[in-house]
Amino acid sequence: MKIVSIYNNKGGEGKSTVSVGLTEFLAANRKKKVLLIDLDGQASSSCALLGHLSVKNAIREQRTSVELMQQILHQRKEIEDIEPFLTWRPATDSKRAPLAEIAVMVPDGSKAFELEEQMKWNRDHSLFLKYLKPALKSFDYVLIDMPGNLQKTQVIAMNGMVMSDHVVVPVKPTHISLNALPNTFEMIEYVQTLTGNGSPSNIGILRNFSDKRRQQYQTNFPGIESAAANGELPPLFENSWTPASIFETATDDRQEFRTLYSRFGSGSSSTYKACRLVAKELDERCSGDFKAGKSKRIRKNLWERLGLA
């Protein structure tokens, strides 16, 4: 079982889109048992996978990450049964590229704030690591859709990062996006100091909405690629998430999807291929001999040298 956070501290970098795509392709294409834990209060990935009504029902029935954390705070022991907090999206019966069954844990943004006011950071930042992670062993992958603008006061979301084995950082090839990366890396490095074992390892920067033929990419990304190759930055994924209009509908909960093709384009489309290849690469990096390299602090003057500061 591997727990992977999808995280960038800047909003709008496509964390939810990547979370949905990886969840679908790991489950259906890579034949993995996948749980998506949505810790973003906006519940974008939850709504995309389950539909707005199912998310509302889970919140109304108190089957969210907030109720789970409340139970952990009260009992201070390992969770024996995770099922009451999960909502399952059933598999489809299509003959070609059907969607697989997946589990989702939805957030409750309003209740999270109230609960976190009662929590103490120094005492409660590793509760998921201690009491939830052992209960997730039946899954091959647990993906965590993290919120942007993460702060220590968001103790529930920080718990998700602390219990993660790896983190994937999606980033768009714009000057504003790249200039915001140091805050993301600083937060990951901070969590690594909390765990004391280098986790979560930054398994890769995922170029999101990227097309090497476009001027924006050619202007902003070569320096990042060079720094990653020299070990000054975490490694880049070899494959990238392509810019495509179909992504706008892939996370639209008003759409009904029965196959990977209907959600991400035909098997011959660049979008479908990109999703499949990124999911395959993530699976290989998590289960193979890939080494993310030893954790080391990313120097702030790197951004000055790259002309991004």
Rank of each mutant, 00 (worst) to 15 (best):
Q42D: 06
N57R: 15
S65H: 09
E67Q: 10
S54R: 15
L36H: 02
R30K: 09
A43G: 13
I59D: 11
R63A: 11
V34P: 07
V18N: 15
S65C: 11
A43M: 10
L26Q: 06
N57G: 12
L68C: 11
E61T: 11
E61D: 15
V18H: 11
T23R: 14
R63M: 09
I37M: 10
K31M: 07
A43L: 08
K15C: 01
A28I: 01
I59W: 01
S16Q: 03
L22G: 06
Q62L: 07
S19P: 00
N29W: 06
Q71Y: 00
K56P: 07
K31D: 12
A43R: 09
A27C: 04
H52L: 15
L53V: 14
M69H: 05
L26G: 05
D40W: 02
G51K: 09
D40Q: 12
S16E: 01
G51T: 06
L39V: 04
N29Q: 13
S45N: 02
T23V: 11
S45A: 06
Q62I: 04
L53W: 11
A58I: 11
Q71I: 00
L53C: 13
L68M: 12
V55K: 15
L50N: 07
D38Q: 05
S44H: 08
V55L: 13
S19M: 00
T64D: 06
L35N: 13
L39F: 00
T23N: 14
I59G: 10
V20I: 05
S44K: 09
V66A: 03
Q62E: 14
L53D: 15
L22C: 02
N57Y: 10
K33D: 11
A58P: 14
K56M: 10
A43E: 09
R30F: 00
V34K: 10
Q62C: 08
E61Y: 04
V66R: 08
C47F: 01
